[in-house]
Design a protein around this nucleic acid. Structure first.
Length: 666
RNA sequence: GCGCCCGUAGCUCAGGGGAUAGAGCAGCUGCCUUCUAAGCAGCGGGUCGCUGGUUCGAUUCCAGCCGGGCGCGCCA
């Protein structure tokens, strides 16, 4: 209704009956809804609020307002040379006024708006389509933390959630003119890495030797998988041998001391052992990043290491920062904040000086939620910083370097307490911008346990599925379907593979984004590899169909000399069917769905609107089989293909915003 | 135990102070000489967890209870 809501409200505001009631455009706009049944009308105006303010009953208000329709004939004359009038009639129905709209006028407006905002017809033009854009966030910056996996661990399905929810939010926000800085807050610091180093030295002595010798690749060809197994093996052994715990802490302390020395340009004083640990850590980080990169490439996501440096260690950020931030996020791992501008230390000093923090059990803590709730730990009893400290530092950094008006964190709901504490701590430290901090939480990925219940992923219990495995299975299933159903496409092996990737990965992405992000996801192979119904492949299917009808039109146009792109002159008045009207209304509503998706950090609101559009499209497609969309009647065919084009662009635009890849055939 | 999140059709989920609560999956029935059937049309399927409260009106808001999940000081 969005493209239509404004003009409808403007028209109504000009009615004498609305003027008499003192109702302006905005007040009217807020009360416009769709009636529950088609035969009631096209839009309804709820009169509850107006009636309350006027001190009369809603039914009476509805009657009064509807009476204004008697002036429609007069209005007709006044608007004779302007845009065609939209409202055709008004009837009071209980507490509502139901309006019938001029279909031709409305569809004309919707199609024109989509055509105006979405130039070009190829999928290469699609990134420029902007239907539903707004200026809401112009001049404002959102710093968006998403994906943020831990290094030395493989990416599992639950990482997909943060990555794709975050990526979609980034694109959706950008559509509302926000500048969005995506940040991949790599989990690359903490005592865990001391344990990893200790484990590597214990089980693979050559790693320690190479590192001591200054080898920059002490891990050789080790994979992330091996690193992860080493870490787990070491952890298992800790349970039997408590001394290993201390060994891990020791290795981490060496590493932290070294990196601090490095930042202070005193690395030579830090000793060989620290440097060796640093080399191991740095290599492990590199191995992990290489693996992440492979996965991100599949998903179409890109991050750059921050600060972006050239060989001479000068910032060579980019000539086009706006574009850079649109196309890339930044890797700023936790480790960055250990040394960055001394932020951690300053936060600690600040908290202690202002008496916000206090000493407790050998640690320095902030009680954010009372003494009976766990505190934020700034300094652990072994003197090391905790992850809270680094998170606080990162918030300050983001605020300072990226001027974030909002700082948002796309992180699972298990960490609700953590973020509540962190935001509260910022507030207690006097940072009033903490009000602009948001935890964008999402549900867990659950797996079936041996006794048939659903439970959180657990590597040890074998309840974990690697992201790569999931994507492979999905793409593989799509390959099979292409072979089975589209022999033409299958013959072009290269093209078929591209399509299989786009559709297979798209299926996984759409499955993740179509429902509210806070729902837990029950991982079920049968469901995720079932491509019927409200799925990614279904969405792409409708997009592809709209493309092939357009091609069909061009063939027919050539044969019958209609003119190659003559559909662009299609007359909206020819679109008289109910399903065409319904479709136009759904298209008109897309901008509002986008706006809400942006405001609520909820991609599913956009995805749902797209599902409705796709379903209505598919129904229309089948129900026009008798006359065909491209049929004998030139004028009807032109008008319908004009609608086809609009649907194709809105679907294409929406799917791109969700992070999917478009295809021409499938 | 405390804190937070969640209970809508057999399953997975939309919706949300207002007009007869909607989809998909699964099941059953039809529909491919014709623009892609990864589709469409139809059928069956509901005490919106329970009990109170606020309201002209509650599935929606509030409280309590029941059921499920997550979190709960030095892992991140």
């Amino acid at each position: 209704m969005d493209v239509l809501r404004q003009p409808i409200a403007e028209e109504l505001a000009a009615w004498e009956s609305f003027k008499a009631a003192g109702l302006g455009v905005d007040a009217i706009k807020a009360q416009l809804v769709r009636p529950p049944k088609r035969d009631m009308g096209d839009v309804a105006l709820g009169c509850f609020v107006f009636a309350k303010n006027a001190g009369i009953k809603p039914n009476e208000m509805a009657l009064k307002l509807a009476a204004g329709s008697s002036q429609l004939a007069v209005r007709e004359q006044q608007t004779a040379n302007r845009e065609p009038r939209i409202i055709e009639s008004a009837t009071a129905a209980g507490p509502y006024v139901n309006f019938k709209l001029s279909r031709a006028a409305c569809i004309g407006r919707v199609l024109s708006e989509i055509e105006r905002t979405c130039p070009g017809n190829s999928i290469d033009d699609a990134p420029l389509w902007s239907f539903g854009a707004s200026e809401e966030g112009r001049g404002k910056t959102l710093v968006l933390d998403f994906s943020s996996p831990n290094i030395a661990k493989p990416l599992a399905v639950h990482h997909l959630r943060s990555t794709m929810i975050g990526y979609a939010i980034k694109k959706i926000r950008e559509s509302q003119s926000w500048r969005v800085v995506g940040i991949n807050h790599l989990g690359d610091w903490g005592t865990g890495f001391g344990k990893l180093i200790a484990g590597l030295k214990k089980y693979f002595p050559e790693v320690g030797q190479r590192a001591l010798a200054g080898d920059a690749r002490p891990l050789g060809d080790m994979t992330v998988q091996v690193l992860n197994e080493t870490y787990q093996r070491f952890n298992r052994e800790i349970k039997e041998n408590e001394e290993l715990e201390a060994a891990g802490k020791h290795e981490f302390a060496l590493l932290e001391r070294y990196i601090e020395a490095l930042a202070a340009d005193k690395a030579h004083e830090a000793g060989a052992a620290g440097k060796a640990n640093f080399l191991i850590w740095e290599h492990a980080r590199g191995v992990s990043l290489a693996e992440f990169e492979r996965m991100y490439a599949h998903l179409g996501v890109s991050f750059h290491v921050w600060p972006v440096l050239d060989l001479h260690r000068k910032r060579v950020f980019t000539d086009e920062p706006a574009r850079f931030y649109r196309e890339n996020g930044l890797y700023i791992g936790e480790s960055y904040y250990v040394t960055a501008e001394d932020l951690c230390r300053r936060i600690i000093a600040d908290a202690v000086d202002s008496k916000v923090a206090e000493e407790s059990e050998g640690a320095i803590v902030i009680y954010t939620h009372g003494k009976d709730q766990p505190p934020v730990i700034l300094v652990k009893n072994d003197g090391a910083t905790a992850y809270h400290t680094r998170d606080l530092a990162s918030a300050l950094y983001r605020r300072r370097h990226f001027n974030g008006d909002e700082l948002a964190y796309v992180v699972g709901g298990e960490q609700r307490l953590h973020f509540a504490q962190m935001f509260k701590a910022l507030e207690m430290l006097g940072h009033d911008w903490a009000k602009g901090c948001r935890h964008i939480d999402f549900g867990l990925v659950l797996f079936k346990t041996a006794d048939g219940k659903w439970a959180k992923a657990a590597t040890r219990a074998g309840r974990v599925i690697l992201l790569e495995h999931l994507l492979d299975e999905s793409v593989d299933a799509v390959r099979g379907i292409i072979k089975e159903k589209n022999a033409d496409l299958a013959q072009d092996a290269q093209q078929a593979e591209r399509v299989a990737q786009a559709v297979g990965v798209g299926a996984v992405i759409f499955n993740d984004l179509k429902n509210g992000r806070r729902n837990d996801i029950k991982f079920d192979w049968d469901e995720i590899l079932n491509f019927t119904g409200e799925t990614g492949p279904y969405m792409l299917m409708q997009f592809v169909r709209m493309g092939s009808v357009t091609e069909k039109f061009h063939e027919a146009a050539q044969q019958k000399a209609w003119g190659a792109h003559s559909w662009q002159q299609g007359d909206a008045a020819k679109l008289a069917r109910d399903d065409e009207w319904e479709l136009a209304l759904l298209l008109a509503n897309f901008p509002e769905a986008l706006r809400r998706a942006s405001a609520e950090y909820e991609p599913s609101l956009a995805a749902r609107q797209l599902i409705d559009i796709a379903a209505q499209t598919s129904s229309w497609w089948t129900n026009t089989k008798d006359t065909r969309i491209v049929g004998e009647d030139a004028e009807l065919s032109k008008a319908r293909v004009r609608l086809v084009n609009a649907v194709r662009k809105v679907l294409g635009r929406g799917l791109l915003l969700l992070g999917m890849t478009l295809v021409e055939r499938m």
